[in-house]
Amino acid sequence: MEQQFQTSTEAALHHYKEGLGTFTKKLPEVAESFNAFTEACFNEGALSRKEKQLIALGISLAMQDEYCTIYHTKGCLDQGASEQEILEACGVAAAFAGGAAMSQAVTLVQECVAELNRKH
């Protein structure tokens, strides 16, 4: 029997989804409203879904939000962003937010891309 292991990226995504599920049970109106708003924000429009994910990744880095950084790195990949596009978005975030964004880009984002690309 093959032993399964969870990568740190998968573990973080799972942890977030579990927390969201618990929160939704406790405050369904808030969670459902927030989720509907967020979904509307990421719908295709003048900007593509990929562009919106790249923007969200940059903001996540600038805000130093590790869960959102992981979530939106996955979102970028899911929307067809290349590693080069992702890293350029990280560079823009670093130009804005300095060393804190760069430190996450050179560690967390690159680890996420590597782990998630192994799954594709």
Results as ranks from 00 to 15, higher is better:
Gln104Cys: 00
Ala81Tyr: 09
Val113Gly: 02
Ala101Ile: 03
Ile86Trp: 11
Glu85Met: 05
Ala105Glu: 08
Cys90Glu: 11
Ala95Val: 01
Gly98Ile: 02
Ala95Met: 15
Val106Ala: 01
Gly98Trp: 02
Ala93Val: 06
Cys90Lys: 04
Ala100Gln: 14
Val92Leu: 15
Leu87Glu: 11
Ile86Pro: 00
Ala97Cys: 07
Ala89Glu: 14
Thr107Ile: 01
Val92Trp: 10
Cys112Tyr: 11
Glu83Cys: 02
Ala97Gln: 10
Gly91Glu: 15
Glu85Lys: 03
Gly91Met: 15
Glu83Thr: 15
Cys112Met: 05
Gln84Lys: 15
Val113Thr: 05
Val109His: 09
Leu108Ser: 03
Gln110Val: 13
Gln104Ala: 09
Ala93Arg: 11
Ile86His: 06
Gln104Ile: 02
Ser82Glu: 15
Ser103Leu: 04
Glu85His: 00
Ala93Asn: 12
Ala114Ser: 15
Ala101Asn: 08
Glu88Pro: 02
Glu83Asn: 10
Val109Pro: 00
Gln110Ile: 11
Ala114Gln: 11
Leu87Pro: 00
Val106Ser: 04
Ala95Lys: 08
Ser103Glu: 07
Ala89Gln: 08
Ser103Asp: 11
Gly80Val: 09
Ala101Pro: 07
Cys112Gly: 03
Ala94Cys: 07
Phe96Gly: 00
Ala100Phe: 07
Cys90Ile: 04
Ser82Ile: 08
Glu85Ser: 03
Met102Glu: 00
Ala81Ile: 12
Ala94Gln: 09
Glu88Phe: 01
Ala97Asp: 14
Ala94Ser: 15
Ala101Asp: 07
Val113Glu: 06
Ala94Ile: 02
Cys90Ala: 14
Met102Gly: 01
Ala105Tyr: 11
Gln110Pro: 00
Ala95Gly: 15
Ala101Cys: 02
Glu83Asp: 12
Ala89Ile: 09
Gly99Ile: 04
Ala114Met: 11
Glu111Pro: 00
Glu88His: 13
Ser82His: 10
Ala94Phe: 05
Glu85Asn: 03
Gly80Tyr: 13
Cys112Ser: 14
Phe96Ala: 05
Glu111Arg: 14
Glu83Phe: 05
Ala81Asp: 12
Val106Lys: 02
Ala89Leu: 06
Cys112Gln: 04
Ile86Lys: 08
Gln104Trp: 01
Gly91Asp: 13
Glu88Gly: 04
Val92Lys: 10
Glu83Val: 05
Ser82Gly: 09
Gln104Ser: 09
Gln110Tyr: 07
Val109Asn: 06
Ala89Lys: 13
Gly80Ser: 09
Glu111Asn: 14
Ala95Asn: 14
Leu87Ile: 11
Ser103Ala: 04
Gln110Gly: 00
Ala105Phe: 05
Gln104Met: 13
Leu108Met: 12
Glu111Ala: 07
Glu88Trp: 02
Glu111Tyr: 03
Ala93Phe: 09
Gly99Leu: 08
Ala101Glu: 12
Val106Ile: 15
Glu85Tyr: 05
Met102Ala: 05
Cys112Asn: 12
Ser82Gln: 15
Ala94Met: 10
Val106Phe: 12
Ala89Ser: 15
Gln104Leu: 12
